[in-house]
C-alpha cells in the first residue's frame, strides 16, 4: 500500500501502513482486536444486511412505513447493531436529519462558504485533537480535517448561542465517518435542536445546564440502582463530574472503544439519551465488586479505564437494556 508521504512529512509521528488500521480506520494500539462485529460469520452478516435492506427500502423509501408497522422489530434489530454498511443511512433516517436536509436545500453551503464565525480559531485549534488516531483525521489539512472544520464552523454560525464547544468535534467526527459533510451537519442539528428526541443543545449552552442536570440525575440513579456503590462513592467523595461528563457531552465517543461507541449511537439515535444513563449504570454494575473496594485515587483511575471485557458491546449492552 502506498504511503501518502509529503504532506505528512511535517507530522512527527510515523505514517501507519494500511494493515495497522482496524476495520474502523483507527491506528491499532495493540493487537487485541476481537470485536464482536468481526467475530460475526460472513454469511450471518450478509443475511442481516439483506434483512435490513428490505426493511429500509431503496434509499430509505420504506423506512417510515416499516417503523410505523413494526416498531418493536425495528427497536430489537437496532439494539443488535445496525450493519456497518448501512449505518450512515439508517442514522439519518432515525434521527430525522434526512427531513431537515430536504427542507433546507442550500443552507449548509451558505453557512460554510459565506458566513464567518467567532469560533473559527477555537475550532481550528481542536481539529487535530479530535480522533487524532484515526486515519481520516490524521492528515493535517487533509479531507477529514477540512470536513470536520466545515461542519463545526457551519454549526457555530447556525446556532451562535451555542457556537463551538469542545466535545462537539467528537460528535461531528463520528458522524463524518459515516456520511457526507452536509448530512453530518444536519444530523448534528437534529440532535442539538431535538428533531426526534429531547434537544441536546443544553449540553453546550453557557453554564452547560444539561450536563449539570444529567450528572445530578446520574448520581441519583447510581444511589437508586447500586446503593452500596453509591454509598461508597459518597464516602470517597467521588461524584459523576469526575468521570461521566464526557459520557454525556460526547455520547461515549471521546474515549470509548469505537465498536462500542457505534453500538451505543445506534440505540441512542433511535431511543434517546436514556441509553447513555443505562450504559453508564451498566458499566458501574459490571465493575461493581471491584469498584467497591477501591479508594479515591484508584477509583478515579478505574472509572476512566474500564477493563476490556466491560467494553464488549455484546456483554455491556444487554446489561444496559435490562436496566429499567
Amino acid at each position: 500500500m502506498d504511503r501518502s508521504r509529503g504532506i505528512n512529512d511535517y507530522e512527527p509521528g510515523p505514517v501507519p501502513s494500511e494493515s495497522r488500521v482496524d476495520r474502523y480506520g483507527f491506528i491499532k494500539q495493540n493487537v487485541s482486536n476481537s470485536s464482536a462485529a468481526e467475530g460475526l460469520g460472513k454469511s450471518r452478516e450478509a443475511r442481516r444486511v439483506r434483512k435490513w435492506r428490505k426493511m429500509i427500502g431503496v434509499g430509505g423509501s420504506d423506512w417510515k412505513h416499516y417503523v410505523r408497522r413494526k416498531p418493536h422489530v425495528v427497536k430489537r434489530r437496532i439494539r443488535k447493531g445496525i450493519p456497518d454498511c448501512l449505518r450512515g443511512l439508517v442514522w439519518q433516517l432515525i434521527s430525522g436529519s434526512r427531513d431537515l436536509l430536504l427542507m433546507n436545500p442550500g443552507v449548509y453551503e451558505q453557512l460554510v462558504i459565506y458566513e464567518t464565525s467567532a469560533s473559527e480559531l477555537d475550532i481550528i485549534r481542536d481539529i487535530s485533537r479530535t480522533f487524532p488516531t484515526h486515519v481520516f483525521f490524521q492528515q493535517r489539512h487533509g479531507p477529514g480535517q477540512r470536513s470536520l472544520y466545515n461542519v463545526l464552523k457551519a454549526y457555530s454560525v447556525f446556532d451562535r448561542a451555542v457556537g463551538y464547544v469542545q466535545g462537539m468535534g467528537f460528535l461531528a467526527g463520528l458522524l463524518l465517518l459515516y456520511m457526507s459533510e452536509e448530512d453530518a451537519f444536519w444530523l448534528l442539528v437534529a440532535l442539538l435542536k431535538g428533531a426526534v428526541h429531547a434537544p441536546m443543545e443544553g449540553l453546550y449552552q453557557v453554564g452547560l445546564p444539561l450536563v449539570q442536570q444529567y450528572l445530578f440525575q446520574f448520581e441519583h440513579l447510581v444511589r437508586e440502582h447500586l446503593p452500596k456503590l453509591g454509598e461508597h462513592f459518597n464516602r470517597e467523595m467521588i461524584n459523576p463530574s469526575m468521570y461521566a461528563s464526557q459520557w454525556f457531552i460526547t455520547v461515549f465517543s471521546y474515549s470509548f472503544p469505537f465498536p462500542l461507541a457505534l453500538r451505543i449511537w445506534d440505540v441512542f439515535l433511535f431511543e434517546g439519551v436514556k441509553i447513555v444513563f443505562k450504559v453508564g449504570l451498566a458499566l458501574l454494575k459490571y465493575c461493581h465488586d471491584d469498584l467497591i473496594n477501591l479508594s479515591f485515587e484508584k477509583l478515579i483511575h478505574a472509572l476512566r479505564n474500564f477493563p476490556e471485557d466491560a467494553m464488549n458491546p455484546d456483554i455491556l449492552l444487554p446489561m444496559a437494556y435490562s436496566i429499567k
Partner: peptide, 12 residues
C-alpha cells in the same frame, strides 16, 4: 503525547 485529545471536563 503528540496526539493528545482536547480535555473534556477534568482529568486527574
Amino acid at each position: 503525547n503528540l496526539e493528545s485529545k482536547s480535555t473534556i471536563g477534568v482529568e486527574f
